[in-house]
């Protein structure tokens, strides 16, 4: 019994006489299994030369930028005086915009944690690995569910008057509905009709994050009031 299951390796093992199971290939797993690898090129030089060119272009662009765009330096830190407006770095201004609408626990802890957990869990949902379109089977039923969820979300957002979230939500929802009723088979609308639900959720998330960040960065002035980026305001 023990002798048979012993794993032999090295030059003496003969795969033809004793076939051994190396890997399971099940349905709905890897795209790479379906895909034949296609023509291949040597990493050196083909990949490395390309990388080197891209690296050089980026470095040149950055050097030019660094020569003419000085990093800001304001007054010495003063714990007794808050500048107006006090802004976080740009990548947190979306969050700061959220903080304008929701209490700190919701906007600062709950939403970021949920986003993070959702991001980490994305690959572990084995739902729709093949990326079947949302408007595939049972399309009209799905439309009803999507419409109900979107409407509920919009009402909730309207209650807190969070129109910088409403705007991108309405935009993505309009695309979603348009793709349902569209008859297009090619072009961008044709490709939208083939998108799975995960695509729509991520696109909504990116659109919202982008809108919040842009508004927080360019359109918020003293006391987090609305300003136009080309206008000047007294501090």
């Amino acid at each position: 019994m023990m002798e048979k299951t012993k794993i032999e390796s090295g030059f003496s093992s003969d795969a033809k006489k004793e076939p051994r199971r190396i890997v399971f290939i099940t349905r709905n797993t890897s795209a790479k299994v379906k895909d034949d690898r296609g023509p291949e090129l040597m990493t050196y030089p083909h990949l490395l030369v390309r990388e080197a060119i891209v690296f050089e272009v980026l470095i040149i662009a950055m050097v030019v930028l660094a020569l003419f765009w000085d990093a800001p330096l304001e007054q010495l830190a003063n714990p007794l005086l808050t500048p107006n407006p006090a802004k976080a770095p740009w990548y947190f201004l979306g969050l700061q915009e959220l903080l304008h609408y929701f209490p700190p626990f919701v906007a600062g802890i709950l939403i970021p944690t949920l986003v993070l957990v959702a991001l980490i869990m994305i690959p572990y949902f084995h739902v729709n690995v093949e990326g079947k379109p949302l408007w595939g089977e049972k399309a009209s039923k799905r439309l009803a569910v999507v419409a109900a969820v979107t409407l509920g979300l919009l009402i909730l957002l309207a209650v807190v008057d969070a129109w910088t979230i409403i705007l991108p939500t309405v935009f993505v929802a309009a695309l979603l509905v348009a793709s349902y009723f569209s008859k297009a088979t090619s072009g961008w609308m044709g490709s939208l009709r083939l998108k799975p639900l995960s695509w729509w959720v991520m696109t909504w998330f990116i659109a919202t994050a982008l809108c919040l960040t842009v508004v927080g960065t360019f359109f918020r002035g003293p006391g987090w009031s609305w300003v136009w980026p080309w206008g000047t305001h007294a501090v």
């Binding site: 800001p72 830190a77 003063n78 808050t82 500048p83």
Partner: peptide, 8 residues
């Protein structure tokens, strides 16, 4: 350690 940094 300027105002920008401190308040952010």
């Amino acid at each position: 350690w300027d105002q920008l940094a401190f308040w952010a």
